[in-house]
Design a protein around this nucleic acid. Structure first.
Lengths: 248, 248
DNA sequence: CTGTCGCGATGCGTATACAATAGCCGATAT
DNA sequence: ATATCGGCTATTGTATACGCATCGCGACAG
């Protein structure tokens, strides 16, 4: 690992050139960039649930040592995007049906509860920025770029929570959105993306009008619709219970 | 670091003797125990906000290398119990007034919102266990053991959230309770502990009766009372704005 | 006497090396 | 032919070593 990879376009494309990364300089920023690369890859379903993430491979790809990778992997594990099994390494988390229910219940409570505050704090600039995001999401969806659409949809919900002014809850919502993306990857029907095309625009309209109550009600329906579109079948993960299966 | 500290009573008192920690054995459990030791020390105000946590010192005290300590410190940082500044090391987080408001607003939303589900799921056993916790908390408070009382109070709220059945939200509440403990350490008035003596018993009564609505209302008042008991004065942390002060 | 520069020490950030474990494949015995 | 046992390899977990930044103190110049 003493030689540098001359091409830094290996992984996700946004590795910061090779700005004299001799020893330090942008160490922290670099790690953050790697974190975001992996996180994005998971959220965009470029890394599918169950995919193994070997430390050596990641260290090699990003040109840092395993130490840094481990740190990032642990952070991802704490956010429940990856699962760390004691001697088996890291893999992209495969949410269970129970977790999926918990996550969507939590989103119901928090995102809806945040709507009034968001409606209060929203400025015309915020509204137009949100509209732009919704538009880009629609375009991505139309162009068949699922990855982009998924990320934009999550970003939209995150932004909404940020506008409420409560940083703690906004961060929590961000976490829930990431996990929702994972849930969609496992239980979602292909082709039937989570958020309906014009739901987000409708939501913006309520918020713009300062009607937090109606926005909350709409958000509730919106989330229920997403959850209802999932096909949660539980996959029969555990021991197949041969007794029961072959009892005939 | 090759010799063992013969006295293991140095730090928090529950370092697990020196059970032949030759190389591995209970590595993961050990780290978890260390994590809990530090976490508890912070929550119980044995480590006060602003206290510096040097890696070498912790590594020495617990008899592991800095590597393990770093991992634990990062986990604590992600939970916002300690603050990691790039080259200055770790210190116990000192919450700002804004953060305090966010945390209590979040608790209002989530803890109150969880009450109906908790009321639905509560069994007589749960109720008696909760009563026991409340009793022990009262006793600790009466005996002047602030540390114990603080921890028990946080544990009570955490347990309530767990009973709701939503693991995701329960974990979030646990995090919020930890941070609340930190907030009490900074902004709380000495002697006037957060939770009033009999509030928790009252809450149990509502929940036992299955009256989630009333429990939520009571929880709301309860949290408001705690927040109101704080003296948030903002401490003038940032640059003291010498211009303004000496403008006369 | 004061302000600035330089030196030394402390402590974090990163990489590398070593050790242990779990899964896998092949060999052998029944 | 198959099942079981043993060794091997691959991969993680932990510790240690090294480099660099920052902070505090002292000396020297003005």
């Amino acid at each position: 690992m003493t030689e540098r990879q001359p091409d830094s376009t290996a992984a996700t494309g946004d590795v910061p050139s090779r700005k004299r990364l001799g020893k330090n300089g942008d160490g922290a920023e670099r790690h953050d960039a790697i974190y975001r690369s992996i996180s994005d890859a998971i959220i965009e379903h470029r890394l599918k649930p169950g995919a193994r993430l070997r430390e050596d491979a990641l260290a090699d790809v990003f040109g840092v040592s395993r130490t840094g990778i481990r740190k990032i992997l642990q952070r991802l594990a704490l956010e429940q995007l990856v699962t760390l099994t004691p001697r088996r390494g890291a893999s992209v988390t495969r949410p269970t049906a129970d977790e999926a229910k918990d996550v969507f219940d939590a989103r119901q409570m928090v995102e809806c509860g945040l709507m009034p505050a968001t409606a209060r704090h929203m400025t015309p600039d915020d509204a137009s920025a949100l509209r732009d995001m919704a538009r880009r999401e629609r375009e991505a969806l139309r162009a068949g770029e699922q990855s982009t659409a998924i990320k934009l949809s999550a970003a939209f919900h995150e932004r909404l929570a940020q506008l409420s002014g409560n940083a703690t809850l906004a961060e929590f919502v961000a976490r829930l959105c990431s996990r929702s993306s994972l849930i969609l990857a496992v239980y979602g029907n292909p082709g039937h993306l989570g958020c309906e095309s014009h739901d987000h625009d409708e939501l913006i309209r309520f918020l713009e009008a300062g009607d937090g109550e109606r926005a909350a009600a709409f958000m509730s329906r919106h989330l229920k619709a997403i959850e209802a579109s999932l096909s949660i079948v539980e996959e029969e993960e555990e021991v197949p219970d041969l007794q029961r299966i072959f009892s005939g």
